[in-house]
């Protein structure tokens, strides 16, 4: 009986399991894995959109080192990580603590805080372009209280800072939900013991909450740093396609998009920039995970 079942299984299965997996494998093969490999290959060619490329060795990478725009992009994408990640690791945790207690109406607040996550980045970008406009709401308020108007969207550095603020604003709710799940697992006894020992709210936060959600903080740090380095839409929308004054707000992915698309797109060169994006992304992940391990020991 058992034998016959087993042999039936063996006879029947070779075709159908692959039928199940085929659509998914086909799509990720053709549109994720193949493009990934071809990006790696193209990086060593001078391929253009309409012209098949020749192998050029490291020429693209040598050109990168001479390209001022590449260094601008690398600088801005790196600054983005430095500016955004600490805020996205800490602020959503505080927000999660604020909405953790089940007081009346709290589910409304939780949902409301999540709204920016649901909105398209284009909507979010345009909302903030209008809010931070020379004559927009923020400047109206600043003028009303006597500070005067600030050129959030005309100064190179203020533009980058504003874009970072928008990224943080949009990400708050998302990471808040992640932290809420982690906080639910913090044993209440720890807080009580600390309270009995006379620890105040801040002491308890630092000695009980933070250690308990530390692995979640690492996760959030890894997720947000990878996302921050690949920033495109916020800066594209707020600074414009050319990347702000003299292109000084261009990020790496904006540079990829600008050099690689269109009929004259330099596919090879854009692929070389993409390879840099891969390498830094992987390095960031490893860095965060390593910092995590060192903390633990």
């Amino acid at each position: 009986m058992a034998m016959s079942t087993a042999s039936r299984v063996r006879r029947q299965l070779p075709t159908s399991p692959w039928l199940f997996a085929a659509p998914g494998l086909l799509i990720i093969g053709a549109f994720i894995l193949y493009p990934f490999v071809s990006t790696l290959v193209n990086a060593f060619t001078d391929r253009r959109t309409l012209i098949p490329g020749r192998f050029v060795g490291l020429a693209n990478f040598r050109e990168l080192l001479q390209d001022d725009m590449f260094w601008v992009g690398l600088r801005n994408s790196t600054l983005y990580v430095v500016g955004v990640v600490p805020a996205l690791v800490v602020l959503p945790l505080l927000l999660a603590l604020l909405v953790q207690k089940n007081i009346p109406g709290i589910t409304f607040f939780r949902s409301a805080f999540y709204t920016p996550v649901v909105a398209s980045i284009v909507v979010v970008g345009l909302i903030w372009v209008w809010l931070l406009d020379e004559r927009g709401l923020v400047n109206s308020l600043l003028e009303t209280i006597g500070v005067g108007r600030v050129g959030f969207l005309s100064d190179q550095w203020l533009l980058l800072l504003s874009a970072m603020a928008v990224t943080v604003w949009k990400g708050l709710g998302y990471y808040m939900i992640i932290y809420l799940a982690a906080l639910a697992n913090v044993p209440r006894e720890l807080h009580e013991a600390a309270a009995v020992d006379g620890a105040g709210a801040i002491r308890r936060f630092l000695t009980v909450t933070v250690p308990a959600v530390r692995s979640t903080m690492v996760l959030v740090g890894a997720l947000s740093s990878v996302a921050a380095f690949k920033v495109f839409s916020e800066v594209y929308l707020m600074a414009g396609p050319s990347g702000g004054p003299a292109g000084e707000d261009t990020t790496l992915v904006m540079l990829v998009q600008r050099t690689g698309t269109g009929l004259t797109g330099r596919v090879g060169y854009a692929s070389a920039i993409s390879v840099v994006v891969f390498v830094v992304t992987v390095a960031l992940m490893l860095l965060v995970l390593r910092a995590d391990r060192r903390d633990e020991s």
Partner: peptide
């Protein structure tokens, strides 16, 4: 159960790790 299941799983895991922003140009040429 079939031969190659681990390879298939690995393919999906790898695909999940590929940063889409880095391959858009190749996706476009494809």
């Amino acid at each position: 159960r079939y031969r190659g299941r681990r390879a298939a799983t690995l393919a999906f895991v790898l695909a999940m790790l590929v940063p889409v922003e880095g391959i858009i140009i190749a996706q476009f040429t494809t």
